[in-house]
Design a protein around this nucleic acid. Structure first.
Length: 919
RNA sequence: GCCCCGGUGGUGGAACCGGUAGACACGCGGGACUUAAAAUCCCGUGGCCAGUGAUGGUCGUGCGGGUUCAAGUCCCGCCCGGGGUACCA
């Protein structure tokens, strides 16, 4: 019987589903292993062949771990809230939940055909109220928590209130944004709205006026990771800076823990670097500069306290409250005009103007506390309001931005490093010997920095300070298709909905657009109130639902908890997470933060969610081109095109095989080409090709369904792995798939004789056959553990080629081999397993253990080289020691020939590796 | 600009700790089977040079240096491609 993959695959997919083969429950008698894929957003376009790459790799790993005796949790679900469904709803009026449901069904259909071992009974969808109640619940917990910097964890706000009642807020070690200082007495004298306003500045989920990325094109606010190069990542719309009242998560309180935690996880260094950079820890000092005519001193942040003597001016961010305080009457009009000008600029313009500095003098002066000199205070948008204190001391000689500013406005530049030349550019490097710097003269920069900070502290004009670039996460979106906030307003003050009333279900609206008044779409909902009070109109961002979904998989559908104690104590955290690197500064940071918070409040036992992370590469498209002679309907073959003036056009890759165009089908492809003419080479039309993004517009999309129906899921799975390392990006080229398909046919044929009849025999295998088997088993196990799936596939090919040559069809060889192959090709192996007489699934078998006695060789073909050049090989026993090998080689006839009578200077022998003769 | 990661045949890619570069596969060329095609099987396949020939020589892992008996692998300096980040004081 031929290898009939379609029937085999359909049969076993059905059987696995019916028998619940991949259903998993907590089993304390077995070690656990949690393999997770980043869940997909179900888009309308469906899956292309690049999407399942990571899923296949993780599925192989999950199946392997099961065969090794682990209880494996391997779930899947959908990141189902998101902009595309909502934009589609705006255009068509179709409810986003409807589109999402359809798209998810399509995804499921496609995924099922590939034969994954997901436990679908644990499916989580972020848009399902039964799930998002836990997103809302977590928000409520954050609302009622504050960050205690002393205990370094989140604690209940009730405890904070107790502290306020006892001692006011001055000494409370909290991460906060509260501008006022009060005593216990003052706190007690406040009324409820006043207290609630204060507490908002301490909560981990808080409402505040903040500078946000406002995207008019999408009608919503965006988080920093959703903006790139001044435009929105989704849709590419212009983004403006705007002051708005928004919900935020105080993730900045966790900056140090997020940084430290990176040392505990097995992620690639480059991904950790991206996160480290995003967190952006810097060590420096905050220093007060007295201001002429004011009692109050201005606070600045610097990492270069050593350069204090070189400060020749100060710069304020346009948004700084100090601008109004220091501006002189004469400069008021100019400053106003500048602020006006700056406010109209969007992020892109602000960034594009790196070269031309803008700014204005405020008319105010600050006093350099070290040199005693007065320096002018300027305003410029090169200083950011959100970092440090929104004010800087400018040292043009040693900071390139200050340098450009000084040159632009003719401000003095005082060099502080001996022998440096600042006539054309600043010297930013932290090296050299200090000069012009009073008590720091003669010191190196590295010595001077701590000395200067110590001096600042000794004089009581500032203190050592660590800053982070990481900002609090803006958590409101002025959109419809997201989790509603469990928040209502009483007298303008936000309160959370009682937990017993969760979930707060997303209400229906007539259209998915903002209201006339400019409120978000939820402003259109009828009776959008709680206990008679108005509800919050924003919804949560995309990352809300994806920050803890991996916990709910452990205990899906639990109506009482995100995850039960028993379940989370068993599954703990994700052992292996597979997904794209594009989530480095979004999902992967937010999830870590969310997990640490849940850890702080005692809901989960570990504070890092993803122990090991593998980033799968992208599968790129391989496009084909035809060359049309300009102004004609004539097409010229690739290698002749240089003789003509041509236009390169994408051609659908389904019309091309091995870069040769199917002319008839090309003519039928579009009416424009119906009467096309062709200039051929060797009777063929050869197409050009290029590696590009896989996309419809390039006509290079390959759909997994098509591959499955032509070659089967087992072939698709193995070919995706065979393409190359999982982590690497590489182009998809369907022509290569034949080799993998051929391999599976050969493998199938090992079980049959020449006539096609079943021929597996119970005969003792030979030493040689056992060696082939055990070597393969050992390699595969090693390859899977290293996540080197491509070399695993090669190892199988080599094994099958060798067994085929030996015409081996012995049960004792084929049976263990089947189990070894099962993670890669689950269907064909299941079929053959049952034909061998088994009744239970092969996926519940045990992975065979390689016996070392079959792995050791007793002979080795030594490559013998002369002065590093390999000339011949000499097979010798591996039991020979260094001297014996040397003797054997030196007396060999071949050696004498290559030496040609010259004296040997040195012989290098590495037993079991190489012999090198130097002469 | 700064920080990562890459660069190996016509193509995708192998090569453990420095030890026979190009495994495995595609493609291509040749052959067998066939009326023919598909499928299958066998042989060859990095470049150049020499030889009728089994073969021999030589160059070769982006470029230029270096360390070493030996370098795709380690070190220094560049070039190119991809990703991250960017007035973060």
């Amino acid at each position: 019987m031929e290898y009939q993959f379609s029937e085999i695959e359909a049969k076993w997919q059905k059987a696995w589903e019916e028998q619940g083969t991949y259903k998993v429950t907590e089993d304390p008698s077995l070690p656990k292993f949690y393999v997770l894929d980043m869940f997909p957003y179900p888009s309308g376009a469906g899956l292309h062949v690049g999407h399942p790459l990571g899923y296949i790799a993780s599925d192989i790993y999950a199946r392997f771990k099961r065969l090794k005796g682990y209880n494996v949790l391997h779930p899947m679900g959908y990141d189902a809230f998101g902009l595309p469904a909502e934009q589609y709803a705006i255009q068509t009026g179709q409810h986003p939940s409807e589109t999402t449901r359809k798209n998810a069904a399509r995804y499921r259909e496609q995924l099922d055909k590939i034969g994954f071992s997901f436990d679908w009974s644990r499916e989580v969808r972020t848009c399902d109220p039964a799930y998002y109640r836990w997103t809302q619940w977590a928000f409520i917990q954050m609302f009622h928590s504050w960050y205690n910097k002393e205990t370094d964890r989140a604690e209940p706000v009730a405890q904070l209130v107790a502290l306020f009642e006892k001692q006011g807020n001055r000494e409370v070690p909290a991460a906060h944004s509260c501008p006022v200082v009060f005593t216990a007495k003052e706190w007690k004298a406040m009324d409820e709205p006043q207290r609630m306003k204060i507490l908002l500045d301490y909560r981990l989920a808080y409402l505040a006026d903040t500078m946000v990325n406002w995207c008019p094109g999408l009608g919503t606010v965006l988080a920093n990771d959703e903006v790139k190069d001044g435009v929105s990542v989704r849709g590419g719309h212009v983004v403006l800076q705007k002051q708005m009242k928004q919900w935020s998560l105080r993730i900045s309180a966790y900056a140090q823990r997020l940084l430290d935690g990176l040392d505990q996880v097995e992620w690639t260094e480059s991904l950790k670097d991206i996160q480290r950079h995003w967190i952006g820890r810097s060590e420096g000092a905050e220093v007060f500069f007295p201001v002429r005519g004011l009692k109050e001193s201005m606070l600045i942040y610097t990492t270069r306290a050593d350069t204090m003597f070189g400060v020749t001016f100060m710069v304020l961010a346009p948004e700084s409250e100090w601008v109004q305080k220091v501006t002189s009457p004469e400069q008021k009009a100019a400053v106003q005009e500048y602020l006006e000008q700056v406010s109209h600029r969007n992020e892109r313009e602000r960034q594009a103007e790196t070269r031309t500095m803008t700014g204005v003098f405020t008319g105010g002066y600050a006093l350099n506390p070290f040199s005693g000199k007065e320096v002018p205070i300027w305003v410029s948008d090169y200083v950011l309001a959100g970092y440090g204190t929104g004010a800087i001391m400018a040292v043009p000689a040693h900071d390139s931005r200050d340098y450009v500013f000084a040159k632009t406005f003719g401000l003095p530049i005082v060099p502080l490093i001996e022998g440096c030349d600042v006539s054309t550019e600043s010297l930013d490097a932290k090296e050299g010997i200090m000069m012009n710097s009073g008590f720091l003269n003669g010191k190196t920069v590295k010595e001077a920095i701590p000395i200067a900070i110590r001096e600042v502290e000794a004089r009581g004009i500032g203190r050592r300070k660590v800053n982070y670039r990481l900002r609090d996460a803006i958590f409101s979106r002025q959109r419809y298709w997201g989790e509603p906030f469990p928040v209502y307003y009483r007298e303008g003050i936000p309160y959370t909905v009682e937990e017993k009333d969760l979930p707060v279900v997303l209400p229906e609206v007539d259209v998915y657009l903002p209201t006339e008044a400019g409120d978000p779409p939820l402003g259109r909902a009828k009776d959008w109130t709680y206990k008679g009070y108005p509800m919050e109109l924003s919804t949560m961002p995309g990352f809300a639902g994806s920050s803890a979904y991996y916990f709910h998989y452990m205990d899906p559908g639990n109506p009482h908890r995100l995850v039960s104690e028993d379940a989370v104590r068993y599954w703990k955290s994700v052992d292996l997470y597979v997904g794209g690197t594009e989530h480095a500064t979004g999902h992967l940071i937010y999830s870590r933060f969310w997990c640490k918070f849940l850890y702080d409040i005692g809901v989960v036992p570990e504070d890092e969610p993803f122990r090991k992370l593998i980033n799968q590469g992208m599968i790129q498209g391989r496009s084909n081109f035809v060359y049309r002679v300009r102004g004609t309907n004539q097409f010229v073959s690739l290698h002749l095109k240089d003789q003509y003036d041509t236009t390169e056009l994408h051609v659908d890759i389904s019309l091309v095989q091995n870069d040769v165009l199917d002319i008839e089908r090309f003519r039928a492809w579009s009416p424009d080409y119906a009467d096309a003419e062709f200039i051929l080479e060797d009777g063929k039309y050869v197409c050009g090709w290029a590696v590009e993004k896989m996309s419809k517009s390039m006509y290079n999309v390959v759909n997994p369904d098509e591959v499955v129906s032509r070659y089967g899921a087992d072939t698709l799975r193995m070919y995706e792995m065979f393409l190359g390392p999982v982590e690497q990006s590489k182009p998809w080229d369907t022509s290569g798939i034949e080799g993998v398909h051929r391999f599976l046919k050969k493998f199938w044929n090992l079980f049959r004789d020449r006539s096609g009849a079943w021929c597996v025999e119970d005969v003792a295998p030979t030493e040689k056959e056992l060696k082939i088997l055990h070597r393969t088993m050992a390699r595969i196990e090693n390859n899977i553990e290293q996540f080197s799936m491509n070399t695993a596939v090669s190892s199988f090919m080599i094994c099958v080629n060798e067994l085929q040559e030996l015409r081996c069809c012995k049960r004792q060889i084929l049976e263990p081999l089947l189990v070894t192959l099962a993670p890669f090709a689950p269907h064909i192996t299941e079929e053959l397993w049952h034909r061998l007489g088994h009744t239970a699934s092969i996926h519940q078998a045990t992975f065979p253990v390689a016996d070392v006695k079959y792995l050791v060789e007793n002979e080795f073909a030594y490559p013998v080289s002369f002065n590093g050049k390999t000339r011949f090989t000499l097979t010798l026993g591996l039991d020979l020691d260094r001297d014996a090998v040397e003797q054997a080689v030196l007396t060999d006839a071949n050696t004498l020939k290559y030496l040609d009578g010259k004296p040997v200077r040195k012989v290098v022998v590495v037993p079991g590796r190489i012999v090198n003769i130097v002469f």
